[in-house]
Nucleic acid binder design. Sequence first.
DNA 1: GTTCTAGAAC
DNA 2: GTTCTAGAAC
Length: 268
Amino acid sequence: MDEEKILRKYARKADPQSLPPTIRFEYDEHTLTVYDAYPKSVFHFLILPRIVPPLTAGRLASLRTLLQGDKAQAKEVLDRLDAAAKIVREQIEAEMLNRFGYKWSIWTGFHAVQSMEHVHLHVISSDLCSPSMKNKKHYNSFHPEHGFFLPLEEILSWPEAEPSWYATMSELRPSQYEPFLKESLSCWRCYKEFKNMPLLKEHLQEEWDAEAKRERARLERKQKLEQDRLKKADRGESPSAKRQRESSPSDPEPKRQRADSPSQSTQD
DNA sequence: GTTCTAGAAC
DNA sequence: GTTCTAGAAC
Protein backbone atom coordinates (compact mmCIF):
# COMPACT_ATOMS: atom_id res chain seq x y z
CA MET A 1 0.00 0.00 0.00
CA ASP A 2 1.21 3.41 -0.96
CA GLU A 3 2.51 5.16 2.15
CA GLU A 4 1.19 8.44 0.89
CA LYS A 5 -2.40 7.24 0.87
CA ILE A 6 -2.27 5.69 4.30
CA LEU A 7 -4.72 8.18 5.85
CA ARG A 8 -7.20 7.63 3.05
CA LYS A 9 -6.99 3.92 3.71
CA TYR A 10 -7.88 4.50 7.37
CA ALA A 11 -10.69 6.90 6.50
CA ARG A 12 -12.21 4.32 4.14
CA LYS A 13 -12.45 1.58 6.76
CA ALA A 14 -16.02 0.49 7.26
CA ASP A 15 -15.01 -0.85 10.64
CA PRO A 16 -12.32 1.28 12.29
CA GLN A 17 -12.33 -1.16 15.19
CA SER A 18 -10.21 -3.40 12.98
CA LEU A 19 -7.38 -0.85 13.10
CA PRO A 20 -4.73 -1.74 15.68
CA PRO A 21 -4.91 0.21 18.92
CA THR A 22 -1.42 1.56 18.25
CA ILE A 23 -2.95 3.53 15.38
CA ARG A 24 -6.57 4.04 16.36
CA PHE A 25 -7.42 6.35 19.23
CA GLU A 26 -11.19 6.57 18.79
CA TYR A 27 -13.87 7.07 16.20
CA ASP A 28 -17.49 7.95 15.67
CA GLU A 29 -19.86 7.76 12.73
CA HIS A 30 -18.13 10.55 10.81
CA THR A 31 -14.62 10.90 12.21
CA LEU A 32 -11.62 8.76 13.06
CA THR A 33 -8.86 9.90 15.41
CA VAL A 34 -5.43 8.31 15.03
CA TYR A 35 -2.09 8.78 16.78
CA ASP A 36 0.30 10.74 14.60
CA ALA A 37 2.93 8.19 13.61
CA TYR A 38 5.68 10.80 14.11
CA PRO A 39 4.36 12.97 16.95
CA LYS A 40 5.88 16.44 17.05
CA SER A 41 4.76 17.02 20.66
CA VAL A 42 4.05 14.94 23.73
CA PHE A 43 0.43 14.71 22.53
CA HIS A 44 -0.27 14.68 18.82
CA PHE A 45 -3.37 13.27 17.15
CA LEU A 46 -4.87 13.44 13.68
CA ILE A 47 -8.64 13.57 13.22
CA LEU A 48 -9.84 12.36 9.82
CA PRO A 49 -13.28 12.73 8.30
CA ARG A 50 -14.41 9.22 7.36
CA ILE A 51 -15.30 8.53 3.75
CA VAL A 52 -19.04 8.02 4.10
CA PRO A 53 -21.48 8.82 1.26
CA PRO A 54 -22.17 11.41 -0.02
CA LEU A 55 -18.54 12.27 0.86
CA THR A 56 -15.96 10.95 -1.58
CA ALA A 57 -12.23 10.35 -1.32
CA GLY A 58 -11.75 13.05 -3.93
CA ARG A 59 -13.71 15.65 -2.01
CA LEU A 60 -11.74 14.79 1.13
CA ALA A 61 -8.36 14.69 -0.60
CA SER A 62 -7.29 17.92 1.08
CA LEU A 63 -8.62 20.93 2.95
CA ARG A 64 -8.49 22.76 -0.37
CA THR A 65 -10.65 20.24 -2.24
CA LEU A 66 -13.09 20.22 0.66
CA LEU A 67 -13.44 24.01 0.82
CA GLN A 68 -13.71 24.32 -2.94
CA GLY A 69 -16.60 21.89 -3.06
CA ASP A 70 -20.12 22.38 -1.72
CA LYS A 71 -19.91 24.96 1.05
CA ALA A 72 -22.62 23.47 3.27
CA GLN A 73 -20.98 20.08 3.04
CA ALA A 74 -17.58 21.55 3.89
CA LYS A 75 -19.10 23.30 6.89
CA GLU A 76 -20.65 20.07 8.07
CA VAL A 77 -17.36 18.19 7.84
CA LEU A 78 -15.55 20.95 9.71
CA ASP A 79 -18.21 20.98 12.43
CA ARG A 80 -17.87 17.23 12.91
CA LEU A 81 -14.09 17.50 13.15
CA ASP A 82 -14.56 20.33 15.63
CA ALA A 83 -16.85 18.23 17.81
CA ALA A 84 -14.42 15.30 17.76
CA ALA A 85 -11.51 17.62 18.56
CA LYS A 86 -13.26 18.92 21.67
CA ILE A 87 -13.56 15.38 23.01
CA VAL A 88 -9.96 14.54 22.16
CA ARG A 89 -8.75 17.70 23.91
CA GLU A 90 -10.66 16.76 27.06
CA GLN A 91 -8.97 13.37 27.06
CA ILE A 92 -5.56 14.91 26.49
CA GLU A 93 -6.13 17.29 29.40
CA ALA A 94 -7.09 14.42 31.69
CA GLU A 95 -3.92 12.61 30.64
CA MET A 96 -1.84 15.76 31.17
CA LEU A 97 -3.07 15.95 34.76
CA ASN A 98 -2.49 12.24 35.30
CA ARG A 99 0.99 12.05 33.89
CA PHE A 100 2.34 15.55 34.43
CA GLY A 101 0.23 17.07 37.19
CA TYR A 102 -0.82 20.11 35.18
CA LYS A 103 -2.39 21.12 31.88
CA TRP A 104 -0.85 23.13 29.06
CA SER A 105 -2.30 24.44 25.85
CA ILE A 106 -3.44 22.30 22.96
CA TRP A 107 -3.58 23.59 19.39
CA THR A 108 -6.21 22.42 16.89
CA GLY A 109 -5.74 23.18 13.22
CA PHE A 110 -4.70 22.24 9.70
CA HIS A 111 -1.49 22.58 7.76
CA ALA A 112 -2.22 25.01 4.94
CA VAL A 113 -0.48 22.62 2.57
CA GLN A 114 -0.67 19.02 3.64
CA SER A 115 1.90 16.40 2.70
CA MET A 116 -0.26 13.34 3.19
CA GLU A 117 -3.37 12.85 1.13
CA HIS A 118 -6.74 13.08 2.93
CA VAL A 119 -7.95 15.91 5.15
CA HIS A 120 -6.45 15.64 8.64
CA LEU A 121 -6.93 17.94 11.60
CA HIS A 122 -3.96 18.19 13.97
CA VAL A 123 -4.63 18.21 17.70
CA ILE A 124 -1.24 18.86 19.26
CA SER A 125 0.03 19.98 22.65
CA SER A 126 2.04 23.19 22.60
CA ASP A 127 5.27 21.82 24.07
CA LEU A 128 6.66 20.83 20.64
CA CYS A 129 9.07 18.58 22.49
CA SER A 130 9.47 15.22 20.80
CA PRO A 131 12.21 13.12 19.20
CA SER A 132 10.28 13.28 15.92
CA MET A 133 10.55 17.07 15.83
CA LYS A 134 13.66 17.09 13.69
CA ASN A 135 13.88 19.94 11.22
CA LYS A 136 12.89 23.51 10.48
CA LYS A 137 9.95 22.47 8.35
CA HIS A 138 8.53 20.35 11.15
CA TYR A 139 8.81 23.20 13.61
CA ASN A 140 7.63 26.05 11.42
CA SER A 141 4.61 24.06 10.27
CA PHE A 142 3.22 24.38 13.81
CA HIS A 143 4.59 27.80 14.74
CA PRO A 144 1.46 29.73 15.73
CA GLU A 145 2.70 33.05 14.29
CA HIS A 146 4.06 32.02 10.91
CA GLY A 147 0.73 31.31 9.21
CA PHE A 148 1.31 27.80 7.92
CA PHE A 149 -0.73 26.37 10.78
CA LEU A 150 -4.39 27.33 10.34
CA PRO A 151 -6.38 27.12 13.57
CA LEU A 152 -9.70 25.33 13.09
CA GLU A 153 -11.49 28.19 14.86
CA GLU A 154 -10.36 30.49 12.08
CA ILE A 155 -11.41 28.20 9.26
CA LEU A 156 -14.83 27.69 10.85
CA SER A 157 -15.46 31.40 10.34
CA TRP A 158 -14.57 31.37 6.64
CA PRO A 159 -17.91 30.06 5.31
CA GLU A 160 -19.68 32.97 7.06
CA ALA A 161 -17.44 35.52 5.35
CA GLU A 162 -17.81 37.39 2.05
CA PRO A 163 -18.07 34.76 -0.75
CA SER A 164 -15.27 36.28 -2.80
CA TRP A 165 -13.03 36.30 0.26
CA TYR A 166 -14.00 32.70 1.02
CA ALA A 167 -13.10 31.73 -2.54
CA THR A 168 -9.71 33.40 -2.25
CA MET A 169 -8.89 31.81 1.10
CA SER A 170 -10.01 28.40 -0.16
CA GLU A 171 -7.34 28.41 -2.84
CA LEU A 172 -4.72 27.63 -0.17
CA ARG A 173 -1.98 28.19 -2.69
CA PRO A 174 1.23 26.35 -1.81
CA SER A 175 3.26 29.25 -3.21
CA GLN A 176 1.64 31.50 -0.63
CA TYR A 177 2.22 29.24 2.37
CA GLU A 178 5.39 27.28 1.68
CA PRO A 179 7.70 30.25 2.32
CA PHE A 180 6.47 30.25 5.95
CA LEU A 181 8.25 26.94 6.44
CA LYS A 182 11.58 28.58 5.67
CA GLU A 183 11.40 31.35 8.23
CA SER A 184 14.16 31.55 10.81
CA LEU A 185 13.90 29.39 13.90
CA SER A 186 12.24 31.46 16.60
CA CYS A 187 10.71 30.36 19.88
CA TRP A 188 6.95 30.78 19.63
CA ARG A 189 6.78 31.79 23.31
CA CYS A 190 9.58 34.35 23.66
CA TYR A 191 10.50 35.03 20.00
CA LYS A 192 14.18 34.36 20.61
CA GLU A 193 15.97 33.14 17.48
CA PHE A 194 18.18 30.07 17.22
CA LYS A 195 20.86 29.11 14.74
CA ASN A 196 19.83 25.48 14.43
CA MET A 197 17.32 22.85 15.54
CA PRO A 198 19.31 21.27 18.37
CA LEU A 199 19.65 24.67 20.04
CA LEU A 200 15.97 25.48 19.52
CA LYS A 201 14.93 22.08 20.86
CA GLU A 202 17.01 22.58 23.96
CA HIS A 203 15.31 25.92 24.51
CA LEU A 204 11.81 24.54 23.91
CA GLN A 205 12.47 21.90 26.54
CA GLU A 206 13.58 24.61 28.99
CA GLU A 207 10.49 26.69 28.25
CA TRP A 208 8.25 23.72 28.82
CA ASP A 209 10.06 22.72 32.02
CA ALA A 210 9.68 26.28 33.30
CA GLU A 211 5.98 26.22 32.48
CA ALA A 212 5.59 22.91 34.32
CA LYS A 213 7.32 24.31 37.38
CA ARG A 214 5.23 27.48 37.32
CA GLU A 215 1.95 25.67 36.83
CA ARG A 216 2.60 23.01 39.46
CA ALA A 217 3.51 25.68 42.00
CA ARG A 218 0.36 27.58 41.14
CA LEU A 219 -1.79 24.48 41.61
CA GLU A 220 -0.11 23.73 44.91
CA ARG A 221 -0.76 27.25 46.20
CA LYS A 222 -4.34 26.94 45.10
CA GLN A 223 -4.80 23.60 46.83
CA LYS A 224 -3.18 24.86 50.00
CA LEU A 225 -5.46 27.89 50.05
CA GLU A 226 -8.40 25.61 49.63
CA GLN A 227 -7.29 23.30 52.46
CA ASP A 228 -6.71 26.25 54.76
CA ARG A 229 -10.10 27.65 53.90
CA LEU A 230 -11.80 24.37 54.70
CA LYS A 231 -9.96 24.07 57.99
CA LYS A 232 -10.95 27.59 58.96
CA ALA A 233 -14.50 26.97 57.86
CA ASP A 234 -14.63 23.89 60.09
CA ARG A 235 -13.55 26.01 63.03
CA GLY A 236 -16.38 28.39 62.26
CA GLU A 237 -14.38 31.39 61.13
CA SER A 238 -16.31 34.48 60.08
CA PRO A 239 -17.54 34.43 56.45
CA SER A 240 -15.97 37.84 55.73
CA ALA A 241 -12.45 36.62 56.50
CA LYS A 242 -13.03 33.66 54.23
CA ARG A 243 -14.15 35.88 51.40
CA GLN A 244 -11.01 37.98 51.70
CA ARG A 245 -8.74 35.00 51.16
CA GLU A 246 -10.80 33.62 48.34
CA SER A 247 -10.28 36.73 46.23
CA SER A 248 -6.57 36.00 46.06
CA PRO A 249 -4.92 38.13 43.35
CA SER A 250 -2.35 35.45 42.57
CA ASP A 251 -4.86 33.27 40.76
CA PRO A 252 -6.75 35.18 38.09
CA GLU A 253 -7.67 32.11 36.08
CA PRO A 254 -11.38 31.41 36.26
CA LYS A 255 -12.16 27.88 37.33
CA ARG A 256 -15.13 25.79 36.47
CA GLN A 257 -15.11 24.14 39.83
CA ARG A 258 -16.90 25.65 42.79
CA ALA A 259 -14.66 26.19 45.80
CA ASP A 260 -17.13 24.43 48.08
CA SER A 261 -16.88 20.93 46.61
CA PRO A 262 -14.11 19.41 48.74
CA SER A 263 -14.55 15.94 47.27
CA GLN A 264 -12.85 16.98 44.05
CA SER A 265 -10.30 19.50 45.22
CA THR A 266 -7.26 17.32 44.52
CA GLN A 267 -7.84 17.08 40.79
CA ASP A 268 -7.76 20.70 39.77
C1' DG B 1 5.63 12.06 5.48
C1' DT B 2 10.88 9.78 6.29
C1' DT B 3 15.65 8.42 5.15
C1' DC B 4 19.99 9.24 3.15
C1' DT B 5 23.90 11.91 2.42
C1' DA B 6 26.88 15.72 0.26
C1' DG B 7 28.65 19.65 1.53
C1' DA B 8 28.08 23.89 4.33
C1' DA B 9 28.88 25.67 8.82
C1' DC B 10 31.32 25.63 12.77
C1' DG C 1 36.91 16.64 12.58
C1' DT C 2 32.13 16.94 13.80
C1' DT C 3 27.57 18.82 13.53
C1' DC C 4 23.86 20.23 10.97
C1' DT C 5 21.06 21.38 6.98
C1' DA C 6 18.60 20.69 2.90
C1' DG C 7 17.65 18.45 -1.42
C1' DA C 8 16.93 13.94 -3.75
C1' DA C 9 15.01 9.53 -3.49
C1' DC C 10 11.54 6.85 -1.77
